[in-house]
Amino acid sequence: MSIEPLHLQFLRPGLRARIDLFFAEKGQGFNAASYVRARLPSILRLDAMSDADLAACGLTRDDILPFVFEDCFADPEGSKQRPMA
C-alpha cells in the first residue's frame, strides 16, 4: 500500500474568502473544492503577480478568478477580449 505525500499550501488571508465568494455568487449547488484544487497553482501564480504584471496580461486582481474559471461558467455579458500574452 502506498501513501501519497502530504502537500500543504497556505493561502494569503482574503484569497480563500475571494474564492468562496466567487463560487457563492455563481449560485452553484456543488462543492467547488475539486475545481479549486485543480486550478490552485494558477490562482496562486496570478495572485502573486504585481498589479503592473497583471495589467500587462490584460487582467486586474478582480479578474483572476473569472479568468481561471472562464471555461466553467458562461459570462452573461460576454467574455472580455484579452490580448494573448
Rank of each mutant, 00 (worst) to 15 (best):
F23A: 11
F22S: 01
D62I: 05
F67T: 13
L8W: 10
L8M: 12
Q9T: 12
A56N: 11
A48R: 07
F30W: 00
R12N: 15
P41H: 07
D51C: 04
F69N: 03
R61L: 09
G14E: 00
G14A: 12
P5T: 09
P83V: 14
P5Q: 05
Q81L: 13
A56L: 11
A56S: 13
S79T: 11
E70C: 14
F69R: 03
A74W: 08
G58P: 02
L6W: 11
A48F: 14
F73L: 08
P41V: 02
S79P: 00
K80V: 14
R37L: 11
A55R: 08
C57P: 08
R61K: 06
P66T: 03
Y35N: 02
Q28E: 14
L6Y: 12
L44W: 00
A32S: 13
E77C: 09
Y35G: 02
A74N: 07
Q28D: 14
P83Y: 11
L44G: 03
A48T: 12
R82D: 06
A17D: 12
A55P: 10
M49E: 11
M49P: 01
P41T: 06
L11C: 07
G27S: 00
Q28S: 15
L44H: 05
S50P: 01
L40F: 00
I64Q: 15
F22P: 07
L54T: 15
Q81V: 13
R18W: 04
